[in-house]
Design a protein around this nucleic acid. Sequence first.
DNA 1: TACTCGAATGAGAATCATTAGCAAAAGGAG
DNA 2: CTCCTTTTGCTAATGATTCTCATTCGAGTA
Lengths: 120, 120
Amino acid sequence: MVIGALAEADGPRSAAELSRAIGESVPLSSLYRSLAVLEEVGVLAPHYSSPGLTRYELAEWLSGHHHHLVCIGCGRVQDLEADDAIERRLQEIVADVARAASFAELNHALEIEGHCARCA
Amino acid sequence: MVIGALAEADGPRSAAELSRAIGESVPLSSLYRSLAVLEEVGVLAPHYSSPGLTRYELAEWLSGHHHHLVCIGCGRVQDLEADDAIERRLQEIVADVARAASFAELNHALEIEGHCARCA
DNA sequence: TACTCGAATGAGAATCATTAGCAAAAGGAG
DNA sequence: CTCCTTTTGCTAATGATTCTCATTCGAGTA
Ligand SMILES: [Zn+2]
Ligand SMILES: [Zn+2]
Ligand SMILES: [Zn+2]
Ligand SMILES: [Zn+2]
């Protein structure tokens, strides 16, 4: 149920949001347990963008590589898939700066902060 | 004292870490109050990278715009200043994708995950 | 100097997301 | 059916952060 809910979501979801989505009949303790297990085995990726709570999304090997739009107004985090050309340019930049800093780059995460369409 | 401690730090610091740095004689309630005020007036920027706690760093107009290298090995978050040409290219990409998503972009944060020189 | 009153402080309680403990329920092989 | 291991779902505990409120401070005034 967690995986299903996250597959339909358009961004990371917190435990509370997931609970609402899959029905409150599932106890929070079970939900938290499931989230911990799924994270451990690499199916879910945690995402920290708001104080005091963790949101989860499907790991990139399931959902595909993407970036995030973080709304300062309402706190919503929206997924954003860049097209290949853009992603290639971005990957170039990341490789450049990582190399310059002697850092062995494995992945990158770009977050764009601002106001979403609803909060404009 | 908070600003001084953060100016000397090489990365974002949590309230607990700051308390240790500036002396435990300052009560936590006062420290949290100061952090809230400093954030409100735009001197500090919050940084969420670990579950359940907020770290602060000097806002970019004080510390300069920069990105972060997050080491998967040791958990360290290292500041990274990209040179102007790179930063310009990155800014272009961000503006492009934000526009395409009808998102009013205010700032961007690029985090590169991987292994730092020490953890290679 | 002494008085006044609004602002700042500090100690502790309250809050909220998350974890941990534990007894009951479920599953599965023999 | 029985024994034993795993999973479940309350509930209490935790830990970072925020709230509350009585006390203290301090600038302005007489
Ligand atoms: Zn919004
Ligand atoms: Zn990318
Ligand atoms: Zn490292
Ligand atoms: Zn930084």
